[in-house]
């Protein structure tokens, strides 16, 4: 077996002995689907026989929330909309186990003597993190289906849904998470303390993006007078709409947020008919193709910095 696979083998061995792996899986695989089923059951109990369901609206809502497809969709969409996103929590926890603990337990000196190939160690740890994310995402899909299937026994739900698109979203989100993994590894490796590293992973991107937004909005902003107020308003709106397309946080969750595109479109269809453009609602205006380019660029940047730092660092 090559040095790289030896590292993957060892790191997986370690991950399965870490309790937090199971806590993360439990939160993702059990909590969300259970909540979806409870909400579905409450909707059916309270509203199914009421006037609200005369046009089948409640049944449609229950199908959207608590069907196998609905729960599987919530399991990918939901984690992208909590704050901080559950994806970054999962990845930060994995980075803390795979990189941060090596410093706090002073294990680097053991690891890099047991396996002296630093490129293999770094690549092995990154791939292990991606495999763990893949298992957690795959498990979320399967648990969503399983819980939804159980729900069909006592809810008016079916297996109907755009399954191909949903599976594609799961696969893409797994790939996009590579950028978060690279960022988290870099932050946790650079920070002398695991807790500081994890906090940086959670809040640094948002903080930098917020500061840059303020900077970009203020620079070039001219004093308002009655002649330019309209143009300045347009300019401000343009800045605030354009910037997120380059932001890390706006792009790395794009696949997870893509299933709500249809939902947002249907919710805003009436407004659109009235000439009001709300297509950017819920952040769904960024195309997957563009997001892939941006996330890929971030991933390459973070990986380059991480590799440069890791291969040169002296070990305490």
């Amino acid at each position: 077996m090559s040095a790289f696979w030896n590292v993957v083998h060892a790191e997986l061995f370690k991950l399965v002995r870490k309790r937090r792996t199971y806590v993360l899986a439990g939160l993702w695989w059990l909590l969300l689907p259970t909540l979806a089923l409870i909400v579905g059951r409450v909707l059916v109990s309270n509203l199914a026989a009421s006037f609200a369901n005369e046009a089948g609206g409640v049944d449609l809502l229950v199908q959207t929330i608590a069907s196998p497809f609905g729960i599987a969709r919530i399991s990918i969409v939901g984690p992208a909309y909590v704050s901080p996103p559950f994806y970054v929590i999962v990845v930060a926890a994995l980075a803390a186990v795979l990189v941060g603990e090596e410093r706090s337990h002073r294990m680097w000196k053991t690891i890099l003597v047991s396996q002296p190939s630093r490129p293999a160690v770094l690549a092995g740890k990154l791939v292990t993190a991606m495999l763990a994310v893949g298992v957690l995402l795959g498990g979320a899909l399967l648990s969503g289906v399983a819980f939804g299937a159980a729900g069909t026994l006592f809810l008016p739900t079916t297996f109907a849904g755009e399954w191909g698109g949903l599976v594609r979203a799961y696969l893409l989100q797994w790939a996009f998470t590579g950028a978060i993994v690279a960022f988290a590894f870099l932050m946790v490796h650079l920070a002398r303390n695991v807790a500081v590293g994890v906090i940086l992973v959670f809040f640094l991107p948002g903080l930098l993006e917020g500061l840059y937004t303020v900077y970009a909005a203020v620079v070039g902003f001219q004093p308002i007078n009655r002649f330019n107020v309209f143009l300045q308003g347009i300019r401000m709106r343009q800045v605030l709409e354009d910037l997120p397309t380059y932001f890390f946080t706006a792009n790395v969750y794009a696949p997870a947020r893509s299933p709500v595109r249809e939902l947002a479109a249907s919710l805003t269809s009436e407004a659109a008919a009235d000439g009001l453009d709300l297509s950017g609602l819920l952040g769904s205006s960024i195309t997957l193709e563009r997001a892939a380019v941006v996330a890929g660029a971030y991933a390459l940047l973070f990986l380059a910095l991480l590799t440069w730092r890791f291969l040169r660092a002296d070990v305490d």
Binding site: K14, R17, E101, H105, M107, K109, T110, V113
Partner: peptide, 14 residues
């Protein structure tokens, strides 16, 4: 090469 540099380190939960 086998090494034991300073105090040996381990994963305490294992």
């Amino acid at each position: 090469v086998g090494t034991m540099i300073e105090e040996p380190s381990f994963y305490p939960y294992m």
